[in-house]
Design a binder for these strands. Structure first.
Lengths: 241, 241
DNA sequence: CAGTTTTCGTCGGCCAGCCGACGGACAGCG
DNA sequence: CGCTGTCCGTCGGCTGGCCGACGAAAACTG
């Protein structure tokens, strides 16, 4: 079985990061806690994991559906020598693995895992849930394709800029002429999400700061001055380091 | 609207290439041609496209579901300066675009396009199709994740090797100690699938030939001697060109 | 508050892969 | 049969981004 390299700096007591790809709309979480939801999950065990624990590897857990109940779970692909975070799953998110990916709990988490077949079986008993599931799968798919796009036809600078722009739009608070943005992730974690290295992320952040697009404000906070420039970032030749 | 760069060398009378990611199991095609299938599609127009025609762009056709009836359609992502083929869709395949991708007919093709909402509506009338759809979406998703994996944690050599191994397994015929494999694609098309350039693909092919793993046999045919080496390819340092 | 651990910015060296260019090898096609 | 357009292999040059390393700044710990 493939061993995965140095563990990322997750689970260090930071506030929960944003969810890069929520698998299900919020309504699903409500359903899970309703009577119908308990009915739906009857007979399936809810397992708790300590922080940093491996939940699934490509070898184990073939063709299983995971539903995150609480906490935060990191889904990632790994190699002997490299790693890529697919997304951070949170309560109510669904993930399925006929795909060779790893799951690890970031904080303390509880999860229900079931066989894909069993899940499909249950779905036939609750046809009213189909739209939920379709939307969830559709979102997962379009997120994946967006990821393919960024990996294949954007350079690292554009990926960093895109990530920051999204963070700003999602979690930024207006501040004078710009925005205050809590990063919520270490630079190394961002690198893991973008398929690059900590050093390169850091270099690009510095370049953007040098151009007055943003300003670092402590370890975890950022002040974005020019969201517009961020959203249409093109690397200035020679300015990347 | 983004204009896309040099068109790939598709639609030149080659035999149909393999489908990198079939969206639906074969049974779905049969269903489409059954009475129930005609019922399912009632009211939706079937449009024919000449070869090489653009069917959808990120701007147009938001939130639409496409069902390919005949011919071959290339789904791809594009930039001002780069392009990546997602897959070649064939009869019976489903594709959906809440995602910024292009569709272009490779040969003469006919397609049914419908709004995602309308499609979901119809699905509720034919709940027996849900398993089909779930499987189709699941396959699409796992293909996408596999693609992310290859793009982010395999180098080009490994991607080329993986592509050739898959082609050999799917379409190779035994031949002495090895396999005869019809490529079905120009080197430039392979490059487009793997997110690299024609020259790099060519260089890797040469390197593999030099190592006795395979042998080029005319423009379109390949003789693979060591499928085993292909499947666990690691670039030999300095041997890539 | 001092000691320890984690994160961060930055540098130099290195190399995989991109790009442009070129000539040769195959096709059709008239 | 020669002509023309397409495809292929290969080269040199260049660079984005990886890697290892280092010291400084923050953040925990007691």
């Amino acid at each position: 079985m493939a061993s995965h390299p140095t563990h990322p700096s997750a689970g260090n007591g930071r506030p929960p990061a944003h969810s890069a790809a929520n698998g299900a709309p919020p309504g699903f979480l409500a359903f899970l806690h309703s009577d119908a939801g308990r009915d739906f999950l009857a007979g399936f065990e809810r397992v708790s994991y300590a922080k940093g624990q491996l939940i699934a590897t490509p070898g184990s857990a073939l063709d299983r559906v995971f539903i995150v109940f609480s906490g935060q779970v990191r889904a990632y692909l790994a190699n002997d020598e490299r790693e890529l975070t697919l997304s951070f799953l949170e309560a109510g998110d669904i993930f399925s693995t006929h795909t060779p990916s790893y799951l690890a709990s970031v904080g303390v988490s509880s999860i229900v895992a079931m066989d894909t077949r069993a899940f499909a079986q249950r779905m036939t008993l609750h046809p009213e849930l189909t739209p939920f599931l379709m939307r969830a799968l559709g979102k997962l798919l379009s997120d994946a394709i967006r990821r393919i796009e960024s990996l294949s036809l954007q350079d690292v600078g554009a990926r960093v800029a895109g990530f920051l722009a999204q963070a700003t739009r999602q979690r930024g608070t207006p501040d004078g002429d710009g925005w205050q943005v809590p990063l919520g992730l270490a630079a190394s974690d961002i690198a893991l999400l973008l398929g690059t290295t900590r050093q390169t992320v850091s270099a690009h952040l510095s370049a953007m700061a040098r151009q007055g697009i943003l300003e670092r404000d402590g370890r975890d906070r950022l002040r974005v001055h020019r969201l517009d420039l961020l959203e249409q970032w093109r690397a200035t030749p020679g300015e990347s380091r």
